[in-house]
Design a protein around this nucleic acid. Structure first.
Lengths: 71, 71
DNA sequence: GCTCGATGTCAAAAATATCTTACACGCCGC
DNA sequence: GCGGCGTGTAAGATATTTTTGACATCGAGC
């Protein structure tokens, strides 16, 4: 599986700013697996638009406040 | 292929507002196939975060100005 | 020491997105 | 009529994301 996608994210920071929310807790809140959270945080792949929306909504910010585009 | 995802989009409107840009032209600009553009416009599936970024950048707007979340 | 929670790794399967190709239809200009 | 363009549909193949489950490590607390 190939290349790291040109997408940056601040999921980990936001998680910590949100009262030490754990990966498991975030995963449960957005309805995905802990594996998925780990992979996204590590930039192994970029999430679907749906997951991106859910994540940003959990933190109460916009998508572009969480994910960045290195184009 | 199951259910239509809870994601709305204004790709078609934006395309028309952008000087009658055709599906093919948009597809070429964002580096995907015309099929993909059609499927996204029809809401058959939600694009990847990467495609979403590319699309919104073509139109010079933010992701949330193109895609909406019906959560 | 032991257990627990949080994090990470690995690997395979399932689900979803994307590509390729081909065909069909309506509209417009020639 | 015919050709080109824009749009839509369909099927199969490939790629990517997501899930599942098992196991390893580290730090804190008992």
């Amino acid at each position: 599986m190939g290349k790291p996608p040109p997408i940056t994210n601040r999921v980990r920071e936001l998680r910590e700013e949100h009262g030490q929310m754990s990966q498991s807790a975030l995963a449960k809140e957005i309805g995905v697996t802990r594996q998925t959270v780990i992979a996204i945080e590590q930039g192994r792949y970029s999430p679907s638009l749906e997951s991106a929306f859910k994540i940003s909504r959990v933190f109460g910010v916009g998508i572009e406040d969480v994910f960045g585009w290195v184009g």
